[in-house]
Design a binder for these strands. Structure first.
Lengths: 354, 354
DNA sequence: GAGTCAACCGAAAACGCTTTCGGTTATGTA
DNA sequence: TACATAACCGAAAGCGTTTTCGGTTGACTC
């Protein structure tokens, strides 16, 4: 392939100085238009690509952002992370920036890595995901002065940049969808309140019921871990309630799938006696029997926006306006959410309520 | 946080030259042991981290490897990619190397990106996955002189580095497992032979049958796309065969899940009348009803090994020994593979065979 | 015709490290 | 005593950019 083109060569060929070439390519305003065109033409012709290490050393900018992989890639992580990363990478390549993957194995290592980044500055900014309600990373990154954006809000993300799904709205809509279908006994399987989205989703459900004038029954708000087994156990508990729900809003698809399994084991067909809606829009929900109705959140476009936001922050050196964005999830109608049976809920042994 | 520590400062404090400090830290043999210890002590104390851009510029090494994300992240991609990447990143951080994500949107862009890497050399090597039987990337990367390792073999990977699962062995074992359970009518749902692993897996099935002295029936080798729908349709076709199989080896979990759905729609219970084994070991297989028996391939450790292999290649500048490695998949026993019913296969209208 | 002011470009100093090439000691050998 | 040989270390030249600071033009003003 021969030697790569360097500024020096072009300078010699054009009888100009290296600095002029550099400034022409970087569109400095003290270079005449015609010089710029001739330089650019030559650069294109020779396939010039600047040596990024020299560039980054001289400019003091790393042109690299990092994506922090969730530590234990848990059950829903798969598709989620990939689409987001693909979006981030896509947006970055437009500007010639790199996306660097950071995969700490433990929380302690994560902290060490952050501190190292703060010292070396070899990464200009971070994208973090799986945000907790009370996420220590926010304070740490602020203290270290590392620019970042988060996918998901935290309790102290008032003055930091984030992109989040409007979880509350999503579960509000999920709930009112059930109401429109005719349901009156609508339960919720939520997650640990460590996760901010768990609170938000629960609130959406609550407000949905309130706005429809439906009283919130006791024992209709389950909390469980975000796993298949968690969803299964939570559903089993709901089935023990005096007046079991005819519809269940699940915090995630995986939890919903667990809930479906609990129903099946009791001989109850999801979408008939009891309807279920999940959240995440996972493809695999369509492969179940019956296919799971769910709420889909945009991921690839979210990744692109996150990257763009982070770029703005890094370039401007401060928080520009529009650094917080709420996107909408959309209902994916499949087959587990239908009108309730007229015979439901059944009268239980020890209850008088219809 | 103050100014970061530089070679210069340490040189001044220790009354040594910058070059001595540098060589002491890099363990040059023309520096005395005691100088090394005192330098290292100081470096540790001041939390010295070299400026990687200066380092990479001066040394001409980028200390970065790239992972090429599959272009259209298709159905099984999710978990797969993440675990592999986590493994790669883990291995690289040990050496202070970076993992850079490359996410081309089209095959054309992929080629452009490769050519750019060849010119700029800002990435020392690549890890590629989703290898095709006849994968143009191999020849291209060789021609461009870009070091790479592949997860999966290709037709012309004789003289390049790879790590692959022994697909043939896996399907051999899958098939003989069925035989041990008592099956004699064992079909295979495979994929397009564009994929090298599709051929290998089919061969494993064939050899498994041969080694057990079981004649290979006609119409027992289905080919389909690697999707839920593909698996479903292929299973439907198998059910039309005169003597339907009592066991089916599926090329992937997703295909197996589609096949299960086809069975259910005919009122056939997977694992009873017809047994099924998938491949990939996806977690979600455990969430099905009944849970899918499958073969699991190691991913995180595969990522680590791939990274290590690539590092060796880049550092040595040539293909070191042990640059090809075959790993084993292992059977994950769940509930879709059981002994056949004594009444199976049923006699069909127009056939005389038992 | 002296002074002002753009417009444009070159020189040169960074940026922080690696690595080669000598040069200076102390040690051993003839 | 002279001479080769290690063992160590410093000087300095890169690596390929960016960016500041002047300096040289020519046009324009008064």
């Amino acid at each position: 392939m021969g030697e790569p083109t360097r500024l020096k060569m072009m300078a010699e060929r054009l009888n100009l100085s290296e600095s002029t070439i550099s400034r022409a390519l970087n569109d400095y305003k003290d270079i005449s238009a015609e010089t710029k065109t001739v330089v650019r033409k030559m650069a294109k012709q020779l396939g010039y690509e600047p040596n990024i290490h020299a560039k980054r050393l001289a400019s003091g900018k790393s042109e690299t952002i990092g994506y922090v992989m969730p530590i234990q890639s848990n059950q829903i992580a798969g598709q989620f992370i990939n689409e987001l990363m693909a979006g981030i990478a896509k947006a970055l390549t437009k500007y010639g920036w790199d996306l660097c993957v950071i995969a700490p194995q433990t929380p302690e290592e994560e902290i060490r890595v952050f501190k190292k980044i703060a010292r070396t500055r070899n990464i200009s900014g971070l994208v973090i995901t799986r945000t907790l309600s009370d996420d220590h990373r926010f304070a740490l990154l602020k203290r270290l002065g590392i620019p970042f954006v988060s996918h998901g809000r935290s309790s102290d993300s008032k003055d930091s940049a984030w992109l989040d799904v409007d979880n509350e709205l999503a579960f509000f809509e999920m709930t009112t969808h059930f109401v429109k279908l005719g349901h009156k006994h609508i339960a919720h399987i939520g997650g640990p309140k460590d996760y901010n989205f768990a609170r938000q989703r629960k609130n959406g459900w609550l407000h949905g019921l309130q706005s429809c004038g439906i009283e919130i029954p006791i024992n209709y708000a389950e909390i469980t871990e975000l796993t298949f087994d968690g969803g299964k156990r939570a559903m089993e508990r709901l089935l023990e309630v005096k007046v079991p729900p005819s519809a269940v809003c699940c915090i995630s698809d995986v939890v919903a799938i667990g809930a479906m399994q609990a129903l099946r084991e009791k001989g109850i067909r999801p979408g008939q006696e009891i309807s279920i809606i999940g959240y995440d829009g996972l493809e695999l929900g369509a492969w179940l029997d019956p296919p799971l109705t769910t709420m889909h959140q945009p991921l690839k476009s979210a990744g692109e926006k996150l990257a763009q936001m982070l770029l703005n922050i890094v370039e401007s050196g401060s928080l520009p306006p529009n650094n917080q964005e709420l996107v909408r999830a959309s209902l994916v109608r499949r087959e587990t959410a239908n009108a309730p049976l007229s015979t439901w809920p059944p009268i239980r042994k020890d209850s008088g309520k219809p």
